[in-house]
């Protein structure tokens, strides 16, 4: 699904975030990306989303090289990015409106897109209700709680029926109970939809709860992907189980090794 091949990227000459960095995400997998701030995890997400361009190497999604945002990739950011002047309903509709604006050109919208107003409306209702904000359709973002805004942003993305979901610290601005609630919602979503997803987080527990595979990045130039397989994803209610705590400390150790030594070669 996603092939990152010999990726090079840095901001400016001296900086290096990725060098000859490669990994592959298979279709249907749920990944989390974790690392300290400044490690390039958001950059990696933007690169995959086509919002940043690699300085070297390439990223392919379904064997197609990414040079600009891809219509079937859904992106949810930490700051919900809702239009403040539009209601929840209008915000959820925004992606569909943009697609209608361009028509099925394959660049801004999928080339095989079909515009069926009735189906679109049903899909909007479905996702708003599924995310529990069906009754807030006519409210403006300023009238919602943070959690509700993030739900609206997720609905806006899912309405477009993406085949790949990218999320950049989607829940880090939320209070703990709401964050855990939304983690549960997103895990259920993945179980039902089997959609390929990549969620960036700085929270170790979140990485374990949401990721079937966990990619650990560090502050030195990332060359070798540190990938931790994880069978504990979805263990929302088991945060105090010994397994869960062990997994978390395994990740914590991986996060700490950075500057001292190059990671063991898997290549």
């Amino acid at each position: 699904m996603i092939e990152v091949q010999n990726l090079y990227f840095g901001y400016g000459e001296a900086s290096c975030l990725f060098a000859d960095f490669s990994f592959t995400v298979e279709k249907g997998e749920a990944w989390t990306v974790i690392g300290p701030s400044g490690c390039g995890k958001t950059t990696l997400l933007y690169l995959i989303a086509g919002l940043n361009k690699p300085t070297g190497g390439e990223i392919r999604i379904n064997s197609e090289k990414i040079t600009r945002p891809r219509p079937s990739t859904g992106l949810v950011l930490q700051d919900h990015g809702l239009l403040p002047w539009a209601t929840v309903l209008d915000n959820t509709r925004l992606g569909l409106k943009i697609r209608k604006f361009y028509g099925p050109d394959g660049k801004h919208s999928p080339a095989d897109m079909q515009m069926d107003e009735k189906k679109n409306k049903e899909r909007i209702d479905y996702w708003l209700n599924w995310l529990g904000i069906g009754r807030l359709q006519n409210m403006y973002p300023a009238q919602l709680s943070r959690g509700q805004r993030q739900r609206a942003a997720i609905a806006r993305t899912l309405v477009l029926e993406p085949d790949l979901l990218l999320m950049d610290e989607p829940f880090s601005a939320l209070d703990a109970p709401i964050r855990e609630e939304l983690q549960k919602v997103m895990f259920q979503f993945h179980q039902q939809s089997k959609m390929t997803s990549l969620i960036v987080t700085h929270d170790i527990e979140e990485a374990v709860v949401l990721g079937e595979k966990i990619l650990v990045l560090d502050n030195c130039c990332n060359r070798f992907p540190k990938i931790v397989p994880n069978d504990l994803s979805g263990a929302v209610g088991k945060r105090s189980d010994p397994d869960f705590i062990m997994k978390c400390s395994q990740i914590r150790e991986l996060l700490a090794v950075c500057a001292n030594s190059p990671p063991l070669k898997e290549h």
Partner: peptide, 24 residues
């Protein structure tokens, strides 16, 4: 972030103008 997330919904320059800059 607002601009980026609208871009990620498929908006190019023209749609950004129509759906973001103009109403903003």
């Amino acid at each position: 972030e607002l601009i980026l997330s609208v871009k990620s919904l498929g908006a190019g320059r023209r749609a950004l103008f129509r759906y973001v800059y103009l109403p903003a």
